[in-house]
């Protein structure tokens, strides 16, 4: 996107979960709202809306980003991944399965952000320790679980992903 005049609506095209989609956005439209309202993918949550909680975390070109603090026009031409892209043909991603098996969620509000942050971490290195996981998810707040089962879930998912890679 080169130039967007104030209040003008322009088409923003991005690859989201492998699919190329286009929708209109103003320059001030935030990526989180673009994903939720314009692309109708409501798995990405808005919690604090002040860059603190990480519920809105998505991957942009593979990197976790708080989508409430990035403009939709900045994602034009980029590759975005959200929680909706995790399962394949109804089969849960190892991360989702591990969260299910270990009670890594209660209300589930933080879960999309937790999953996307953890996905980026495990893609880099699936063999993670508790310490590494705790540091990696320190930008994702959970008000329910006390984190213990989230950390357990991420470690277990990593072990499964490491096996799948071999």
């Amino acid at each position: 996107m080169e130039k967007v005049e104030s209040r003008a609506e322009v088409p923003v095209t991005l690859t989201i979960n492998g699919e190329t989609r286009t929708a209109l956005a103003e320059s001030r439209t935030l990526l989180a709202y673009f994903i939720r309202e314009n692309l109708e993918l409501t798995g990405t949550h808005v919690g604090c809306d002040t860059t603190s909680c990480g519920a809105c975390t998505v991957l942009v070109d593979g990197v976790p980003v708080k989508s409430c603090t990035m403009l939709a026009v900045q994602a034009d031409g980029h590759v975005v991944e959200t929680v909706e892209g995790l399962d394949k043909d109804g089969v849960l991603h190892p991360l989702q399965q591990a969260f299910w098996d270990n009670h890594g969620l209660q209300c589930g509000f933080c879960t999309p952000g937790m999953l996307m942050t953890s996905l980026a971490l495990l893609r880099k290195n699936p063999n993670v320790t508790e310490d590494v996981v705790r540091h990696a998810i320190s930008g994702n707040l959970c008000r329910c679980t006390g984190y213990v089962n989230i950390v357990k879930s991420v470690i277990e998912a990593g072990q499964k992903m490491a096996l799948e890679e071999v």
Partner: peptide, 11 residues
């Protein structure tokens, strides 16, 4: 929350 309208120029 969203900002006041602005023009966006990418260099």
């Amino acid at each position: 929350m969203f900002p006041e309208a602005f023009a966006y120029y990418a260099a």
